[in-house]
Design a protein around this nucleic acid. Structure first.
Lengths: 205, 205
DNA sequence: GGCGTTCCTATACTTTGGTATAGGTGGCTA
DNA sequence: TAGCCACCTATACCAAAGTATAGGAACGCC
């Protein structure tokens, strides 16, 4: 029977998940309330098949905890769990060798499926994180770009020059320069390349 | 008990998968050897929970088949299966509303897990497709960049100016300009923004 | 009407980016 | 040894990008 260690500083969250995995699935479940306690717990017995780490937890220190856990216990599957983390964190975690990433909004049944997946040797990555649909109203920093500035940004994102953009938008080059200048300020970046990169990172275009 | 319809023109593949799902999991499995036969099969009974479509199959016509299947049977989960398709196809399929994508190289056990996933209302997307690791030797156009040019490109990808790059690399600004000019030519793009975008698209940095 | 906003244009300017040409170093290789 | 290549530097020039300031047209809003 698989043995799972859950480390999360929220007692309620940790214990309910543990209880669910124990009763519904029959897993052996250990718990810890912070990162160091988790590693301590694993020292005694080497039979922990999976370690579930809360991303926001004392001692975790972002992805450092992941790295440390993987180094000290290479045979144990390590899965990150988070309630707030975004796609980038999940991607980074997977890139650093996590065996899975569990958003807390996942249904209990799906979480179990994910865990089984990982125990079977697969890696679990929640689909909605793969290409998160951008909110129709652009988020945060992009929200207060004007119509024209947004169109300009779009052209920046294919690497066009001011002249080309001017032609495409049917305005003078000076106007494009103005738009560029303004959008750089609004996005808080210092040149067009950074603006394009930023927009791409946020999957705007 | 879930009812699954598998459509694949390779008899061996189709029937072994069907047999496996029937015996090992107890699913009810129907089969079809091309796309139109699959749709015909579904006309009679409305109880097909999941439709597994081979991406390369007579009548499938790329992602057209996916669209047609989804329109005519909105209640049925549709999963695409392929032995050769790459990440882009998988992404496109998921974007068009497929409930899952199964590469044929998946272990049988994992495939079952994926199917259960989808039947449970999740969407399955194989992790290795999410961020395919770039070949260590940079592909094609990036292959003949020199060491320094590659380093320069890396800095371009965070939107730095020539001056900043020069400082970071410990050389004069003119030298950076030279590297930039050369790498633009090698990558066949016309400015630094396009170079950065291109590198990012290929997940170089 | 006056006000604020977005959008457009203009002139003028500085900085940055990109090209061209030339030359020096060191390493590798035929 | 000669030749190639990656790398660095220099001078010079032109094009593109970005800044600053000013003003006009159109719109909605109080």
């Amino acid at each position: 029977m698989p043995c799972i260690l859950i480390a999360d500083d929220h007692d309620l969250v940790r214990d309910t998940i543990a209880a669910y995995l124990e009763t519904a699935e029959g897993f052996t479940v250990l718990t810890a309330s912070n990162f160091d306690a988790a590693l301590d717990n694993m020292k005694g017995l080497e039979a922990v098949d999976m370690l579930i780490l809360d991303y926001n937890m004392p001692g975790m220190n972002g992805l450092d905890g992941l790295e440390r856990a993987r180094k000290t216990h290479p045979a144990t599957k390590v899965v990150l769990m988070s309630g707030v983390a975004n796609k980038d964190v999940a991607n980074a975690a997977m890139a650093q060798g996590a065996d899975g990433f569990i958003p807390k909004r996942l249904a209990a049944k799906s979480m179990v499926n994910a865990i089984k997946f990982v125990l079977a040797g697969e890696r679990y990555f929640p689909f909605d994180f793969a290409e998160p649909k951008q909110a129709e109203t652009p988020t945060g920093q992009f929200a207060d770009l004007s119509e024209r500035e947004m169109q300009t940004l779009e052209q920046l994102c294919i690497g066009l020059s001011n002249k080309e953009i001017a032609r495409n938008l049917g305005v003078q080059e000076v106007t494009v320069k103005l738009h560029v200048k303004n959008l750089l300020a609004k996005l808080n970046v210092s040149n067009r390349t950074q603006a394009a990169l930023l927009a791409k990172e946020n999957h705007l275009f």
